Every structure is written in structure tokens, then in C-alpha cells.
Amino acid sequence: MKLKGKVVLVTGASSGFGEQICYEAAKEGAIVIVCARRIQLIGAVKECCMEYSQQPAYAYQMDVTNPEQVDHVLARIEDEVGAIDVLVNNAGYGLFEDFVNTSFEEIRNMFEVNVLGLMYITKRVAVKMIEQGSGHVINVASIAGKMATPKSSIYSATKFAVLGFSNSIRLELKSFNIHVTTVNPGPMETNFFDKADPEEVYLSKVQPFLTEPAFLARKIVKIIGKPRREINKPLIMAAAAKAYVLFPRVGDYLAGGIFNKK
């Protein structure tokens, strides 16, 4: 029960992967803070967390793209809960569309959610973690941030940015006893695809590669407090991403062929 009594904040936690991370942290006795835009859903997640942890749990409506709201929520958390020990940046979304057909408004919005919002809340929380002398930041990126495929240009670009950002702050925060871990999932059967793939064309083609959200959430919770650099699942896609770097021509073949299911 290494997490017993530790405060874990999860963004994008109203459903799907973020919800499962909340539950797995709660099962380890953590005090879970559920944050998401959909206020109608976060209350139920909070109640489940309290049942699992037998600890208090909290729910706050938060849009990571709104700095004023982030500041307000973090101030409330500091007053009502206390110091944040673990920050899980899970908020984000994707859209599978050809680049030339993607509106610039959509491009800007995806970067604001997946990158700039993540950076802003990380900066605010990291300052407090430095003061307390410990902490763990977990950024949910994607295998798409290692190997881009057609119709994921903007989503991949945002996740490449998250990887680069995480790799840098990992080194910057190491001396303050703050760990930074990047999680790079492949496809998971969550509501992510409600927007990214509404017709379920992609989802139906990648069934053999799907990762169970609860399984990956357990993996994340197990490494909290440890200097783990990355978690990459499924292994076959992680291996393909390595091949993409080591053998670029083969990588393009894989990305544009075998792993291009959109």
C-alpha cells in the first residue's frame, strides 16, 4: 500500500482510461482527485474511488485549456486536499483525418488540449512538487508519438511534442526527486474513438492490438514512485516503433502498410 494516503490527480478522468487509472490508484489506498470537463460524470467516479480506497476522494470540473480555471481548481485542491503527490496528465483526444482536410481550428484545439494544457498544469504542479521535495508526473502520450501513420498527422504531432517535453523535464526535475514517466499506449477500446473513429472502421481492424485499459492502468499505478522512463503497450507496436527509428525505410513500410488501419 505504498500509495495509501498519497494524493493522485488525474485529468481526463470522467471515463475510459483516466477513469481506470483513478480506480487502480484508489485500490492502492490513494486519495484520488478526479478532474475532467464533464461534470455530470466525475461525481460517480469519485464515489467509486471512495469505495475502493476507503479514503476521501474529490472531483473538480477542469478544462485544461483554460489557465484561469486550472489555477482556480489547483488553489481549491491546495486548500481542501493538500499537496499533490502524483499528477497523471491523461486529458487529450485525437481525430483521424487527412491533414489537408483538417480545419486549422481543429488543429489549434488539439494542440491546446494535448500539449499546451498538459504543459500548463504540469508547470503549476511541478513548482509545488519542487517545494515539497518529491513527486511523480505521468504523461499519457501514444505509440503514435513514436510512429506516425496516415490520417493521424495532427494527433501524432501533439504526442511527439508530449514525448519531447517529457524527456526534457525528466532530466530537469530529477535532482528534485521528481520522477517523470511517459505512457505510450496503442489502441484501447475507450470513448477516445467516439471522436477519432466514429464509424469504428479503425477499431474493427485493430482488435488484435487492443490493450485493456484496466490492465494498462494497473501497470501505471505499479510504477508510481519509481524512476520508470516509459511504459509502451502493446509490445508489438513498441517494437515496430523501434524499427521505425532504426530502419526508416522499413518503418515507413510498416507505418503506411501493416499498421495503417485507418
Rank of each mutant, 00 (worst) to 15 (best):
I77Y: 10
I138L: 06
F192L: 08
D194G: 00
F259A: 06
P150M: 02
Q207C: 08
E112Y: 01
A161P: 00
Y253W: 14
G29I: 08
D71L: 07
K146A: 02
T190D: 00
S15R: 11
I220E: 09
V10P: 02
M62H: 08
T190R: 04
R228T: 15
Y244K: 09
E131K: 03
S204Q: 14
I121N: 07
Y244M: 13
N89I: 07
E105D: 13
G133V: 15
R76V: 02
R37L: 08
Q54K: 10
T211W: 12
V206I: 12
Q69V: 00
S103T: 15
N167H: 11
G164F: 07
A214E: 14
A57D: 05
Q20K: 02
A161L: 06
N232L: 15
Y93L: 10
A36F: 04
F193D: 05
R170Y: 00
I21C: 12
A238I: 00
N139E: 09
A214F: 10
F193G: 05
N139H: 08
V115N: 01
I231T: 04
L116R: 01
V45K: 03
C48A: 11
S14H: 04
I223P: 01
E24I: 12
E106P: 02
I169C: 07
F160Y: 11
K4L: 06
G43S: 10
C22T: 02
E112D: 13
P208W: 14
K261N: 14
L173Q: 04
M50E: 14
A13D: 06
N232T: 05
